[in-house]
Each structure stands twice: as C-alpha cells, then as structure tokens.
Nucleic acid binder design. Sequence first.
DNA 1: GACCAGGCACATC
DNA 2: GATGTGCATGGT
Length: 217
Amino acid sequence: MRGPVLEKIYDRLYRSFGPQHWWPGETPFEVAAGAILTQNTNWLNVEKAIFRLKQEKKLSAAALHTLPVQRLASYIRPAGYFNIKAARLKNFIRFLMEEYQGSVERMAEEDLPVIRKKLLTVNGIGPETADSIMLYALEKPVFVIDTYTKRILSRHAILTHDAPYEAYQDLFHAKLSNQVSLFNEYHALLVKLAKEFCRTRPLCSGCPLEDVKPWLG
DNA sequence: GACCAGGCACATC
DNA sequence: GATGTGCATGGT
C-alpha cells in the first residue's frame, strides 16, 4: 500500500455521511450484549431483542445471571440464532461475574491486551465481538474488522480478501493515530458505506470512494 | 421465494 | 491448516 490511503478514505466517508453516532446503546453493558446479539445479524432484529430485554427488565449482568437460558432465548428470538446467542450471552455474563464482579466498567480498568486475551477465551466471543466490546463499550483504541471492512479494502486492492483478521487490524493500527473517536467513527462509516454501495452486486455509481482506488471486482 | 444480515464454533478431511 | 456447515429471524 502506498500513500495515506486510509486517511483519504476516512475523509471521503466522513464528508459524505457525517458522524454515525455509534454504538447505539444506553449503557456499556447494553453495547456489550448488543455486540453478541448482532453476530451475522441485521441490527434492526437486534433492536427488537434488546427492546424485549428492557421490557422484561433483564438488561443487566445481575438479571441475566439468574435468568434461565431457555427464557433468555425466548426473549431474544427476533435476533435469530437465539439458542446459540442465549448460551453465548450466558457465557459472557458468567465471565463478567467471575472476573469483574459483573461490571463492564471494572473490566475497562484493565489493560487492553489483557482484556482482549481474556475475552477471546469466552466461548462465543471471537475477534470482532471482542474488539467491538472493547472499542464501543470500554472505549479502548482497537480497530474493529468486519465482513464489510474486508469487502471494501479487498475490492480497493489494499489487502487480499483472504488475509487474516489481524492483517486488516494491524494495517489500521499502523497507518492511523490510535484514537478511540477515530476508530469508532471509521468503522461505523465503513458499515454505512457498505450498506449503501457494497452489497454483493457492486453499486459503484455515486460511491464516495469511486475514484480512490481502481476497482478490481 | 431467494437473498442477505455489524460471526463463531465445531466437524471433517 | 484449510474448508465446510449449522445456527434462525425478519427485511428487501
């Protein structure tokens, strides 16, 4: 990669779309739970599940800790994969209770690499979910890589599509200043761009990145 | 009715 | 180590 392409892309996206106000959520805990619920799932469906959890007054570590997994699954049904996600949420809650007395804020007091390593030991939390929790719930400077990020960067020939998660993440970490606000906005803007222009059938016309790099298909 | 959505773990080769 | 598959609802 040559030149400050990542900065250029960011400027284009920000000028086109403006601030995205991520992550939608009232508390760090809600953001963390949302990160698990949104795995491979449309955010609108996640909102339905979160709304239900709020209705039932179960959107807290303490409440979820004692909630039977089957009941939890029924509440989060609209988010899809409800049985697996119920188990994953319970895994995360158990971890949060054992390591941080159920407090996401307490988790944030630890160093970034330590938290990340621990989060990745939780069954159901992979790299993207761990990084989403750290960036958007704990406000740690980690860049989140998702399918959209891979799609956009590979189509602009910045990395190959099959490059590992860490390769994508390392690139952002190396080329940008490690600011939470920048990482927050950048990832959200990539998602916004993908939703508008980068579905499986390429819609290049009007894309703010149209002239940034040659399209490879 | 097909296709997709802000992944991950696990089986099998 | 690489590749394939199950998980599931709701919007377009």
